[in-house]
Nucleic acid binder design. Structure first.
Length: 394
DNA sequence: ACTGATGCGTC
DNA sequence: GTCGGAC
DNA sequence: GTCCGACGACGCATCAGT
C-alpha cells in the first residue's frame, strides 16, 4: 500500500465543505480514515480538523496573516518536485517550521512554508493555509471528528469522547481506536502531568434561571482570573493553563503553595487571580503575570497572585472525575483546606441571592453554580455548571 | 539597547 | 470570553 | 441542545531592523 497523498485530504475537505448533512460528513470521514496507513491516521485527523499539533504541545508555527500574504504576493515558484505531497510529508514540513527558533528563524519559517506551498496544487495550498489559521470552513471540528472516529473503530462515541478528554490528543485517540480497538481505548486514563481539558460552563443571568435546571446547587464565586490545573507528585509540581500550556515558571508562588500541601499525588483545579489588599484586581493585571517568562521576580512585587481551588481530578493513583462534585470537593478539602474557594450548597434561592450579592460586593464577577451530583466532564459544556453573571453589573 | 512588527493565548 | 446560525 | 464559525480587547514573547 502506497502512502496517501495530501491531495486526498484536500479533496476530502473540499467535499466536506460542500456537504451540509452531519451524517454524511461523518460517513465521508469514516471511509477516509479506514483507507489510511497506520502512521497516517493521527496526522490526517489533525490535518482535517486543522489542529496540526496536540493540544498540550507547546509547538507553534508562528506563521500568521502577514507572512502568508507576503508569500502569496511573491511570484509562485514552479513546482520542481514531480512527486505529490503526502500526508506525512506535510506533517514533517509543519513540524520543521514549528521547531525553528532563534535568529533568522522567521525568514527560514517563511522559506520553508513557501517551498511547501510550491509543491502543492491550488486546492492543497488552500487547505494548508486554512490549517495554519485553524479556519477549515468545512463544518467539521472536534465534535464530528470524534463521531467519525467512533464509527470507523466501531465503538461507542462516548468511549472515544472520553479518551479524547483525557488525552487531549485526538490524532492519537484515532490511531488507538482504529488500530487497537476498544480494549486499548479504555486504557486511556488521566495521567499525572498530562493535562486534561477543563470542564466548561453555560451562561446564566439570574438565580432563577439556574434553579429552573435543578433544585439543589453548589455555588462558588466566579473569579475574574485564569483557570489553572495543577499536577503534583510530592515536590514535583506543574501548572497548566486552560489551553493546556505549561505556565509553572510564571507562577512560582503558586507552585510553592502546592509543594507545601504535603500531598502525595494530586490534580487540582482552580483559578489564579491578581489581588491587592484582599480585593481582586482586573483581569488585565493578572495578564501581566500569567504567561510571563522574563523578570518574574520583579513582576511578583508589582502584582500579587492568589489561588482559589475548586476541584480535584486525581488523587494518589486514582482518577476522581467520575465521582460526584460533592465527593471530589470533600477530597479537595481534605487535601488542601487552606486554598479552598468558598462554596455554599443550597436549595434556597434567597441564600443564593445573598451569596451572589456578597461575591459582587467583594469585587468578583458573579457565581458559579454546579450540580452537586455531577461528574467532571473534561472539555464539555452542559447544564451541570453555570456561570452566573447578572446583567447590569460591571 | 531600543523599537516596531508579528504572533499567541487569556478572557 | 461573546454572539448568531445551522443542523 | 449541540456544534461550529466569526468576532473583540489586552498583554507578553520573539524576532527583525536599526
Amino acid at each position: 500500500m502506497s502512502e496517501t497523498t495530501f491531495s486526498a485530504v484536500a479533496v476530502l475537505c473540499d467535499t466536506l465543505a460542500r456537504t451540509a448533512s452531519r451524517r454524511e460528513k461523518i460517513r465521508l470521514i469514516k471511509e477516509f480514515l479506514l483507507r489510511l496507513k497506520e502512521d497516517e491516521i493521527a496526522p490526517a485527523v489533525a490535518q482535517i480538523i486543522g489542529t496540526i499539533f496536540p493540544e498540550d504541545a507547546s509547538t507553534n508555527l508562528e506563521i500568521g496573516y502577514s507572512t502568508v500574504k507576503r508569500i502569496s504576493e511573491r511570484k509562485r515558484q514552479t513546482t520542481l518536485f514531480p512527486a505529490p505531497l503526502t500526508i506525512l510529508e506535510v506533517r514533517e514540513y509543519l513540524n520543521e517550521i514549528a521547531a525553528l527558533q532563534g535568529s533568522g528563524s522567521r525568514e527560514r519559517k517563511e522559506k520553508l512554508l513557501e517551498s511547501l506551498l510550491g509543491r502543492a496544487g491550488s486546492l492543497e495550498v488552500s487547505y494548508i493555509i486554512r490549517m495554519i489559521f485553524k479556519e477549515m470552513e468545512h463544518g467539521v471540528s472536534e465534535g464530528l471528528m470524534l463521531e467519525a472516529i467512533a464509527e470507523a473503530a466501531r465503538v461507542e462515541p462516548e468511549l472515544v469522547s472520553r479518551a479524547n478528554m483525557l488525552s487531549a490528543d485526538i490524532g492519537e485517540v484515532a490511531r488507538i481506536a482504529i488500530l487497537k480497538g476498544r480494549t486499548e481505548l479504555e486504557k486511556i486514563q488521566l495521567v499525572l502531568f498530562r493535562p486534561v481539558k477543563p470542564m466548561l460552563a453555560e451562561m446564566a443571568y439570574s438565580i432563577d434561571e439556574v434553579f429552573e435546571e435543578g433544585s439543589l446547587w453548589a455555588f462558588e464565586y466566579k473569579f475574574d482570573g485564569a483557570r489553572i490545573q495543577i499536577h503534583m507528585r510530592g515536590k514535583d509540581v506543574r501548572i497548566f493553563s486552560r489551553r493546556l500550556s505549561d505556565v509553572t515558571s510564571s507562577l512560582p508562588e503558586i507552585a510553592e503553595l502546592a509543594r507545601e500541601l504535603g500531598v502525595e499525588e494530586a490534580v487540582l483545579e482552580g483559578e489564579a487571580i491578581a489581588v491587592k489588599d484582599g480585593r481582586p484586581l482586573p483581569f488585565q493585571e493578572l495578564m501581566r503575570r500569567f504567561r510571563r517568562v522574563h523578570e518574574i521576580d520583579a513582576a511578583r512585587m508589582v502584582v500579587a497572585v492568589r489561588l482559589y481551588l475548586f476541584d480535584l481530578l486525581y488523587r494518589d493513583g486514582k482518577t476522581t472525575i467520575d465521582m460526584p462534585y460533592t465527593a471530589r470537593r470533600a477530597l479537595l478539602a481534605e487535601a488542601c483546606p487552606s486554598l479552598l474557594a468558598e462554596m455554599v450548597i443550597t436549595q434556597d434561592r434567597a441564600k443564593a441571592e445573598v451569596f451572589l450579592k456578597r461575591a459582587l460586593d467583594e469585587g468578583h464577577e458573579g457565581l458559579m453554580a454546579k450540580a452537586p451530583d455531577s461528574p467532571y466532564t473534561p472539555g464539555k459544556r452542559g447544564k451541570k455548571w453555570f456561570k452566573l453573571k447578572p446583567c447590569g453589573y460591571p
